[in-house]
Design a protein around this nucleic acid. Structure first.
Lengths: 125, 125
DNA sequence: GTCGCGAATTACCTATAGGAAAGCGCTTAC
DNA sequence: GTAAGCGCTTTCCTATAGGTAATTCGCGAC
């Protein structure tokens, strides 16, 4: 990401604007799993049980409801292949690619943050 | 790591890696308010009641506990100016600036998303 | 005919987030 | 001496997210 983020943070009049944007974004992506699920499927389209295995800790109930929500909101598509034992794959829509930048930042930051936590743990022992 | 040149699963270990990163990031920034609060203070350091007014919908109880949490996790500093009516300002730490990129993406995406929602609403009427 | 799989659904339960409203200790202002 | 503002804290309450475990339904395999 070659984005020069100097002075990117808003001046006064944009304040309320970006505050609202951030709140809206978080509202749309609420819950523990949505972003992770989208990431998972962007990596490659998958079936229900595959996702269940790849996302550590999610239950089938929660997965099902999250998938439904994501489908309604047009982040993913549920594609039924009418093969012999019909298999169903979930794939990201074009729209969910608009989240790539955000997911990238989340991932980068998450990694650095974990690193930082590890450091401060070491210091305490 | 040894290479298992089986299927064409695109960088499988990066997958799990960024998945974990994303989950960790969300864990650290959990709740409805943290990111918005950090943004608010990055815009400019502020006092309790100022923040209360600027963040629409937050209550003083929740604000207090979020500020505490953010302070413990070193995103902000609580600075007491021993002026006559001692005033207390909350300001972001250096560390919270590491969130600039993420916040920028959140804000951008949130704005576009709201735009999209508006469009799809129009279509339905 | 029953076993297991894939894709859920259902019922049940609980922890936690977080909202509303009031209060409290302090201080300066009227 | 009372009012008002600031920075919270306390109490009370509720909705929802989300966890566990069992069940369902269609299907093909054995």
């Amino acid at each position: 990401m070659e984005k020069e983020a100097e002075e990117v943070i808003p001046n006064k009049q944009d304040c309320a604007g970006s505050l609202r944007n951030v709140l809206d974004a978080q509202y749309a992506l609420n819950g523990k799993w949505k972003v992770a699920l989208i990431l998972c499927m962007i990596q490659s389209p998958k079936r229900f049980n595959e996702i269940l295995q790849e996302i550590p800790g999610i239950s089938s109930k929660v997965l099902a409801s999250e998938l439904k929500h994501l489908e309604i909101n047009e982040f993913i598509k549920r594609v039924v292949h009418p093969t012999a034992p019909a298999n169903i794959i979930y794939e990201p829509t074009e729209y969910s690619r608009s989240l790539k930048g955000l997911i990238g930042e989340l991932s980068d930051w998450g990694e650095k943050h974990r690193e930082k936590i590890k450091q401060s743990m070491k210091q305490n022992f």
